[in-house]
Structures are given as structure tokens and as C-alpha cells.
Amino acid sequence: MARQRLRGGRRTAARPSLPDGERGTGFGRRQRSGSSRVVAGLMVAASVAVITVDAAGGEASPVDPVRHAVGTVVGPVETGSATAARPLREALAYFSSNRSLREEVATLSAQNSRLRTQAEQVPLDRNRLAELDGLTRTANRTGRALVAARVVGMGPMQSFSRTVTIDAGTSSGVGRDMTVLNNDGLVGRVISATASTATVLLVVDTESVVGGRLGSNLEIGFLRGRGVTADRGRLDLDLVDNAASPAQGDTVVTWGSQNGRPYVAGIPIGTVESVYSTPRELAKRAVIDPYVDFTSLDVVGVVVDEDTDGDRIVVNGRGQ
């Protein structure tokens, strides 16, 4: 009552005597509050219904076809917007780079020498692994073919999921459960694909679990994301063998899944940053610093079958 009187006194001059219920004015508020409450209730109920349907559906959720349809329409729009915004990104990168360039040079030169020693060891390890692979699992493919793609959309951190959209889809041979990597190492896996885009779950997402193998003693474990892609994007490694102890600075590579899906073997993931154990648990846990910088993802490669025939060039290890 008091409010209405106040409002009346304040606004009557500006908005003279419109009849109650007239849309677009504040006067009908009392009359319309009933119906607005109904609409609000309806929308809350609808949201909860969608959540229930999707959460209960699990793998075969009825929402998935809708999601796919929206992706088919919105995906190309995102691709276009990202392409249009690329000069902006590069301009901003230019300005921000000056500031951070100095420390980056220092970090990179340190990293470079470390990586060089690592790279020198890789061919040996890889040859040994290839031999073993050939002996034990002849069916397993050792060659890799990649389809290159660019990141065109990144989910906001407000959504707490670390997923990105890439501009290659089923028309390029990209499909569900394929490994995604870049020059630095493992990025994630494809969780859904439309004709022209695909969604990638980054390894730093809290829902992501990757089988990892320690470079030094070949112990296997599971890497879980912490959901952060800032400078502190880290993974937690739980080793299967309680007695094994990861060493600081040790390299972690993917362990590999059957037929290379969702993860092919031998992709570098990161280095062991620190090792800790709690009295509650027997196993030691390690914190892994991933090689990939998830804040500046751009060009990535999707591991596809070697005989993939799509609308993009398939890069395989033997030069086209």
C-alpha cells in the first residue's frame, strides 16, 4: 500500500493515469502479480523437469538429440564468430605479451633445455615400446593419423566444466571418444560431434579420468582433473601400485585404451610436480603439471583412423 502511494506520488506526472493492467507500466503490478507468479512457477518447474529428464536419462538421455540439433545450428555460428574475433584475440595477445614476455623467455629457456633432454630419450623409449607392442598386440595400431582443428568456443568457468568446441566434426572423420592433442601433449577427448563441430572434454575437467604411465618405472595410475584451467591447472595422479613412488620431475604419458579409444598410448601428459601421501591412504598421490596450456588452446589435432576420408587433410606420420 505504502509503496503504491509512494510510486504514485513519484511517477504520476510522468506517466498519467493509464488504466490498471496496461502492459509496459508499473501500475498493473498488483493485478499482474498473480499471473507473473504462475509464469515464474511454470518456468521453475520446466527447468527442474529438464534437469530431471537429463540427469535420469544418463547415457541415453532424451535431451541428447536436442543438444545435437542445437549444436548443429549454433556450432557454425560459433565458428564464424571465433574467426571474426581472431584479430581481436591476436591484438590483445600482442599487448599482453610485452608484459609477460620477459619472464616467459626465462621460463621457456629453462623448459627448453629440460625438454631437449626429454626428447633425446623419447626415440629410444618409443622404439622399445613399438617392439613390445608389435610382439604382444599385433592388432593394435601403432601409427597415428591426425585431423587438425581450431578451438572456436570455450565454456565459461561459471559452468564449472572445462570443455571446448573445435571446428571439425563428423564430416572430417571426427567422432566420439577420439583423442585430442596438440604440439605440447594431451588435450582431452571428443565427447560429442555434430557434422561441423565437436565438443572436447579437457583432461583438467573434474569428470575426466585418464590412464597414465610414469616414464621412469612404467607404473600405471589414473589422472583426474581439478577443473581449473588457469595457470594452476593441475591433475591428480593415483597410482595403482601402492608401493610405487613417483619421482619429482618424472614424465607421465598416456597408458592407452583398447583400439586407441578414447586415448591412444604414449601421448605426453605432464610432469610430476610434487608427491604427497596422507596417513589415511596407503597409496602416494602426485600432482601433475600438464604440458598443455589450457588457457591458450588454439590448433589441436584429433587422432583418427588412418583410412579416414573426410573433407580435411588427414596428416599421418609418413608425410600425407
Partner: peptide, 16 residues
């Protein structure tokens, strides 16, 4: 926002 590409959380959460 729940359905557009990079999103893969349970749909309806942003709607609510």
C-alpha cells in the same frame, strides 16, 4: 547455454 556446443553438463541447470 545448457545445450549450445561446449556445454555438456546436465541440461536445465542454467535455465533454473
Amino acid at each position: 547455454l545448457d545445450l549450445a556446443p561446449p556445454a555438456e553438463h546436465v541440461a536445465g541447470r542454467w535455465a533454473l
